[in-house]
Amino acid sequence: MFSFKSIKVFFYARYLKWLRRRLPVSKEVELTQRRIFIMPTKEGVLFGALLLVMLLVSINYQNSMGFMLTFLLGSIFVVSILHTYKNLSGLILKVGRTSSGFCGEDIKFEVILGSALKRHYSIELGWPGSVLKSLDVDVNEHLVTKLYLRSERRGLFVPERMLVQTRYPVGILRSWSWVYLDMSALVYPEPIHSKALPVSISMVDEGVAAAMEGSDDFAGLQNYQKGDSLKHIAWKQFARGQSLHTKKFESYVDKQTWLDWDWLKGIETEHRLSIICGWVLSLNKAGQEYGLRLPGCEIPPGKGDGHRMDVLKALALFGK
């Protein structure tokens, strides 16, 4: 059965499709005639009501200057359609840099605003649901605007259509455009730190896998020596007034750590990935080598930021 809601959903989907066709995705968008929509704002509707009242007063008092004023304001309304439209047209939006982040974090997207012809006043920019950012764009300026969007799902984060709007000059009209900028960011799984690492030490050379207690287990303090990693300095103790100490961790130089999908059998996929992500962060922090084994993907052990990024990317895109 068709419910009213399903019809609405159907039409909304058609609308989005039409919008997408009309406003295709691209790296750079210049707001032109076909892209700009314009409607009165609530204040504009109020202004219309005001004009009606003024017209009634003028009629009742048979006051010519009252008519003149009413028609003048009405004409300003009409003229400001052109101005509000003009304030948006010619604005150029370009894709800037994006950052990646963990699920649930705000992801930064940079949009570069430019204009070849004129200054654009009070341009508001943002995604539906977030606070719009308001800025002026000057001629020949390349204004880098940082926008943040809360990530909700792991994977490649492609933001929705973005809203660019302006109410300038008089605020009784709003012209807007929907922009699909071709940008995306990687969203890693939300790390879960609570779970201790059930280390599988794959003794590659022996081909035996054994589980041991957490590899990053704290093994005691030793006096700080030049060259020790800053990451391992026992700041807490130092803060208490003791001399500098370095935290000593058990290391397994000869063994390679593999983070294996199969250990977490029975746990839901996203949760599993979150746990693995948490481990990656801990291991990376500890400066340890680790490898990743996911179904259909294996990253040999390594360390450093590059390695970490590769691993996180694999986690982010797993199953996508």
Partner: peptide, 8 residues
């Protein structure tokens, strides 16, 4: 009216 629509 224009003023209140300018940037803060």
């Amino acid at each position: 009216l224009v003023g209140i629509n300018l940037n803060t």
